[in-house]
Write a protein that binds this DNA or RNA. Structure first.
Length: 357
DNA sequence: AAAGCGGGGAA
DNA sequence: TTCCCAGCTTT
């Protein structure tokens, strides 16, 4: 049996009973589609109900103030959807007596309506053969047909739209579109999909090739996390300092470093925070070595590093001689600091004292 | 082509 | 924590 036929038969058996499935009125379909953009049905449902309650027709929505619309949208996120919703309601009322455009091409011109929403409305309300491509469709098509193009690239967007258009049921586009999305939401889920009881077990590319968890392909754009490190460079009265081995999982594991106070931003350390870090010594003075943080760039993290010169009482066996530091494995950024600092410390201590201010 | 925009639930 | 959700718009 054809892919689309199997899907529609599955849908008729398994579809959820949802309010916007009882109508093909473009106003209600449009409203539901806007609310459900990037939003799970469970989250959007109460908002849909309150919107049709407050604004039973597009005229009611158009007459409302933007603030009232935003107020009702409060908590749903992506607030430009609410502003565009209101704008489009007014536009439809002002230019076409409240009647929505009835073609994909015309719908696409409205604010807040892109390829997905224009396809959804034109197929569900007017049976125009436009295949929707949403997060569910990317997943189902990539798995069943083995389409490996990364979905978040321009080629991916193009390839998936083409395949979606190719395998859809031209005669029942509205039902087909809802079927594939429902299947993606209930069966072909991102994680732990129900492959053992799937109607496509015998033909699904991903299932047959054990690639279900690898599809759809998505280019992961590395997002950089900012972290703020304050290293405490201890100078005790018995001329020692502290190095600790980084034992926790993470960057620089098993390397040595100065006692570290991580903060959520470039904040000025309090003396008590420093003292708490080294309870075995008594802090006398603490000064910032570099006002401007050194930004150490790793692939996924930008580490903003500041060194604090902390003079303390005797620490005896808790510490090591400063000259021994060279024999410990430390991150390069610490090594660079140590080199620079040793220069000030041994050659011209007075210069450092000035710099520390 | 990439970034910005929200809030919530699941693993 | 990370991922993803019935995406669209702007840069």
């Amino acid at each position: 049996m054809k892919f689309s036929n199997k899907l529609i038969l599955w849908y008729l058996d398994n579809k959820r009973d949802l309010p916007w499935r009882k109508t093909t009125d473009p106003y209600f379909i449009w409203l539901s589609e806007i609310i459900l953009q990037q939003t799970k049905i469970e989250q959007g449902m109460p908002f849909y109900l309150s919107f049709i309650q407050s604004f039973p027709t597009v005229f009611d929505l158009a007459e409302a103030s933007e603030h009232d619309v935003l107020k009702l949208w409060q908590g749903l996120g992506y607030y430009s959807r609410a502003r565009n919703l209101h704008h489009t309601a007014k536009f439809v009322v002002d230019t076409n007596k409240g009647i929505f455009p009835s073609s994909y091409k015309e719908l696409l011109k409205l604010k807040g309506i892109g390829d997905y929403t224009a396809s959804a409305i034109s197929s569900i309300c007017f049976n125009e053969p436009q295949a929707v491509v949403d997060g569910n469709v990317y997943r189902v098509l990539s798995r069943v047909f083995g389409l490996q193009t990364p979905r978040n690239t321009s080629k991916g967007i193009k390839d998936f739209k083409e395949l979606a258009q190719e395998v859809m049921d031209i005669e029942n586009s509205g039902t087909y579109n809802q079927a594939i999305m429902e299947f993606g939401a209930l069966w072909c889920k991102p994680r732990n999909p129900s492959c053992e009881a799937c109607i496509f077990q015998n033909s699904c590319y991903a299932f047959l090739n054990k690639q279900v968890h690898l599809l759809p392909v998505k280019i992961s754009k590395i997002k950089v996390r900012n972290r703020f490190f304050n290293y405490l460079v201890i100078l005790s009265s018995d001329d020692k300092t502290i190095l600790k081995q980084q034992t926790q999982q993470g960057i620089w594991k098993n390397l040595y470093e100065f006692p570290l106070v991580e903060t959520s931003e470039n904040s000025f350390l309090r003396k008590t925070e420093i003292q708490n870090k080294i309870p075995f010594a008594s802090v006398q003075t603490a000064s910032l070595f570099n006002e401007t943080p050194i930004i150490h760039k790793l692939s996924h993290q930008h580490i903003h590093i500041r060194f604090w010169i902390v003079k303390t009482s005797e620490i005896r066996d808790y510490g090591i001689c400063f000259s021994q530091i060279a024999s410990f494995a430390v991150p390069i950024v610490l090594h660079n600091f140590i080199t620079k600092f040793s220069f000030y410390k041994t050659v011209n201590f007075d210069t450092f004292e000035k710099l520390a201010k």
